[in-house]
């Protein structure tokens, strides 16, 4: 199956493909459609015992008041600014540091490499609950409590997840290429920057996307380390809608939709970057 040009498939296959896609996407998208449609209803409409038909999915009349209400219920722009700040730092930090570390593990032979790699993977195996207190105490004794530092600095020290992922990708790049470059006298750093990186754009973009989404959605970090409402993030604001003492369902759905929309748009347009075909097959 070629992936670069549009597939020239026989009609029947194309039909089958579309049929499969549509059928499978229904369960994927239905809950989300429900979320959006709920956000456009009043509470009475949501909990009335109406029949299930298309009408239930498309509310009429459209109640758009939930959106301004949701926006009013939290300092949206402030949260947005804070969230973007954390996301940008997170992405830059995570991608650069993880790529560098992954190159070390994947392409350089040095004693202790496998042990350290194993150690790194092992760090993912311990549930975070029990290290929460020691980590918290650590940050507190560093004086970082109440600031963004606990949320930003660790991103620059490479995450095991991304390193593991990138290692897998880097390993698929033939060693002959880097060997040839080494013979030419290039330093590892140069090989890394000029050879490996350009060939790994899909993987790097995937990491960037995941990190962005992860930071965007992270609410526990801000909850634990921040005390000033002026520093809070969108994820935190969303969580405030969900609680025993007064969550409002329609507004929650509106808030969740607002919260998710930027990511959807980001993903849709960024697709090309990491699903871009590697046309320079000769270079491989």
């Amino acid at each position: 199956m070629t992936s670069d040009q549009e597939a020239k498939l026989p009609r029947l296959t194309k039909f089958a493909v579309y049929a499969a896609l549509i059928m499978l996407s229904i369960p994927a998208i239905l809950p989300l459609l429900w979320m959006v449609s709920t956000s456009l209803k009043t509470n009475a409409q949501i909990f009335g015992n109406g029949d299930l038909n298309l009408k239930a999915l498309i509310p009429s009349p459209l109640e758009t008041s939930n959106y301004p209400a949701a926006l009013q219920n939290m300092p949206f722009l402030v949260y947005l600014r804070n969230t973007l700040l954390l996301c940008i730092f997170g992405v830059v930090g995570a991608v650069t540091s993880s790529a560098v570390v992954a190159y070390g593990f994947a392409k350089i032979e040095f004693p202790g490499r496998n042990t350290l790699f194993g150690l790194m993977i092992a760090t993912m195996a311990l549930p975070g609950q029990v290290t929460m207190i020691p980590i918290f105490s650590l940050f507190r004794s560093l004086g970082w409590y109440g600031s963004y530092l606990p949320l930003i600095v660790p991103a620059f020290t490479a995450s095991a997840y991304y390193v593991f992922l990138l290692t897998q990708f880097f390993k698929t790049i033939p060693t002959e290429m880097s060997e040839a470059a080494r013979v030419d006298g290039a330093t590892e750093w140069r090989i890394f920057l000029q050879l490996i990186i350009p060939l790994s754009r899909p993987a790097l973009a995937t990491c960037a996307l995941f990190q962005f989404i992860g930071t965007w959605n992270d609410f526990l970090g801000p909850l634990l380390y921040l005390n000033d409402p002026a520093k809070y993030t969108l994820a935190y604001g969303l969580q405030q809608f969900v609680s025993h003492y007064g969550g409002f369902f329609a507004q929650l759905m509106a808030a969740a939709t607002i919260f998710t929309l930027p990511i959807i748009i980001l993903f849709f347009f960024a697709q090309r970057t990491f699903i871009q075909g590697i046309s320079t097959t000769g270079g491989k």
């Binding site: 070629t2 992936s3 670069d4 040009q5 549009e6 597939a7 498939l9 194309k14 493909v17 579309y18 896609l21 499978l24 996407s25 994927a28 998208i29 809950p31 989300l32 979320m35 989404i213 959605n217 609410f219 994820a235 969303l238 969580q239 969900v242 929650l252 759905m253 969740a256 919260f259 998710t260 990511i263 959807i264 993903f267 849709f268 697709q271 699903i275």
Partner: peptide, 22 residues
């Protein structure tokens, strides 16, 4: 690579994007 595949890819990725709380 059929037409509109980007839309489908987005659809299938959507569930992972929506915050767990929602």
């Amino acid at each position: 690579n059929v037409k509109g595949i980007t839309v489908f890819r987005t659809i299938f990725y959507l569930p992972s994007i929506v915050p767990t709380v929602a």
